[in-house]
Amino acid sequence: MLTSHDWAAIVLTLKLAGLTTVILLILSLPLAWWLARSRSLAASVVGALATLPLVLPPTVLGFYLLVAMGEHGPLGWLTLKLGWGLLSFSFTGLVIASVIYSLPFAVHPLQQAFKAIGERPFEVAATLRASKLDAFFSVALPLARPGIITAAVMSFAHTVGEFGVVLMIGGNIPGRTRVVSVQIFDHVEALEYAQAHWLSGGMLLFSFIVLLTLYLLQRRNFRVI
């Protein structure tokens, strides 16, 4: 059935997806809030930038990240200066790449959820003595809950499924950068179809369960009145 290499890949994938999801939520909540409520030119530019990973081939994204993180790239220069070494072919590099790669999957549902709330609940909150920050936590976050759940699930699932970017900047180092999708690729290259079946079937089942859970959760959504 599954080898120790397979299990290592599964654990690494879950770790990467979990960490990426947490970082993405922390980054995307304020970003999506700003994008949903600002009508400035800057918001449009940032909004387009945040959507870019959705349309770019993962290899393009991975290529630029590889260059940026490399010895002659700005990010590489910085990490070398700080004495952290290079990020390419490391787990940290994978996390950074995943965060960028999955950004639209977190930002978009959140942005839509915040937009759907409209202005009124915040005006009501202000007339009930709540400051803007207070209203963000006591009104915006609870009312955007369905969007937050969607963002978390989509970020996690999308990171689990990433392949091209990982291969470009992480390579294929067992236990460090070899995630399930790469492991499957290796199995197929080595004509180990039985192993590839187990992992692929597992991925298929996992993705289906994730999406099913999401749809079931969305069904119970309350409406904003």
Binding site: R120, P121, L143
Partner: peptide, 14 residues
């Protein structure tokens, strides 16, 4: 420190 009642009831749905 004011109170306001809007045209349509704007109760918090959550």
């Amino acid at each position: 420190g004011l109170g306001m009642v809007f045209q349509e009831a704007s109760l918090f749905a959550h």
